[in-house]
Design a protein around this nucleic acid. Sequence first.
RNA 1: GGAGAAAUACCCAAGUCCGGCUGAAGGGAUCGGUCUUGAAAACCGACAGGGCGUGUGAGCGCCGCGGGGGUUCGAAUCCCUCUUUCUCCGCCA
Length: 425
Amino acid sequence: MLDVEMIMSNPELVKKILGKRGFEVDFSGFIELRERRAFLIKQIEEVRALRNKLSKSIGEYKREKKDTKELFDEIDKIKDSVDKDEEELGKVEELINEFLLKLPNLPDEDILAGDKENNAVVSVNKDKPVFDFPIKDHVELATSLGLIDYERAAKISGRGTWIYTGLGARLEWALINFFIDEHIKDGYVFLMVPHLLNYESGLTAGQFPKFEEDVFWLQEESPKKFLLPTAETALINVHRNEILDVNKLPKKYFSYTPCYRREAGSYRSEERGMIRGYQFNKVEMVQFTTPDNSDDAFLELMIKAETLMKKLGLHYQVSKLAAGDISFAMARTFDIEVWLPSIEIYKEVSSVSNSRTFQARRGMIRYRNEDGKVEFVHTLNGSGLATSRLLPAILEQNQNSDGSVNVPEVLVPYLGGIRVLQKVK
RNA sequence: GGAGAAAUACCCAAGUCCGGCUGAAGGGAUCGGUCUUGAAAACCGACAGGGCGUGUGAGCGCCGCGGGGGUUCGAAUCCCUCUUUCUCCGCCA
């Protein structure tokens, strides 16, 4: 949610900034609605003030056993005059809200306008791995090493799914455990959250109303619930409708959850295997901070995500996303993209974002500053990391000519000392 | 899944039967002070927050007793509805 005062005081500026995303708006109708709202509120409140005064007098008169006829006559005069205004106000506010909920966040000043093509690589880790043998893609590697079973997954569920089998499951779990341990070391609080969330949570996180079609809904539940598309949706809502103590900020959380996404129509040919599925694993970090601390928090999340990648020894690049590629609720996003040698493409394994006050406004997530004033927190999130996408990259980047795969050093302890994934005889 | 009870401020809790002097008793916590070498205790004092509107401002007004709706001149209090929590029964990892 954007700041209404900002829109009202400088609609042209807001329009211009949203334009960086390629988002077209016309605020003229909105401004009229806001003006109408102010007018109606004034009318309604005047009548209510009078009515309250008279009602109070009736109470007093009755106690003193005085005649109240005069007061009732006066009240009769104003009795129904607010009903119509109240009804109109309700409608006006609904329209205002609807409009506001459709506006995406304002990209930060340093964010480039335009779409994907304006994403900028800001750093690269390690050189591209070179192979002196014909390489295999992760589907081939995972299948031949007995790590993943796609066919049986299709049997028990459907397309866009897979089963981690044996060592494959252990490798995936090793990644998750490694990340969990790293985050705990850094002082982040581990939360295990519900996977079924209510509408309000999706609204605060910024998924709704625009992306209601992108998540899985449970038909039977009332009120309706959806499967979380990322742990962020749950984590961000932990402090919804709360006023936090400034001394307890920043709050740092992380969670591991599967992420459930419909991914309707988004499948591309190179995304076979585990690159895109209806369910994938991800460890997610979230911070609630004061505005002052928000840029530092962003940097911290970036460094944390990158550190994990470096420890895994993978070749990746960091992209600063252009305005049009930044998701709806965010003001800035940097992606960490891992190299997949088989398709010669970098694929996102982490997305670190700052929503500034966008989510906080939607969810009324606030804090009391040193002066006792209540302000919105900044909310940030970052994957740390998407394990299901990492596993293919590890297989492909670490493959040997005989079809075996070297386990990243940091994962060896989590795999009971196994250093090389080899074909089972 | 069935039956019942409840939701009041930072926490506990009264008020709800019988609508008006209740934007809400009392206690705790917190903050400030007295006392003390310091602390504790005791005592004194402060303590509804928040949203919205209006005003340069002190302020004034509107809305707030789980959410939404209704009855009424007037609702914490009466009615409807939803949500959540607790207790008991059933089922179950």
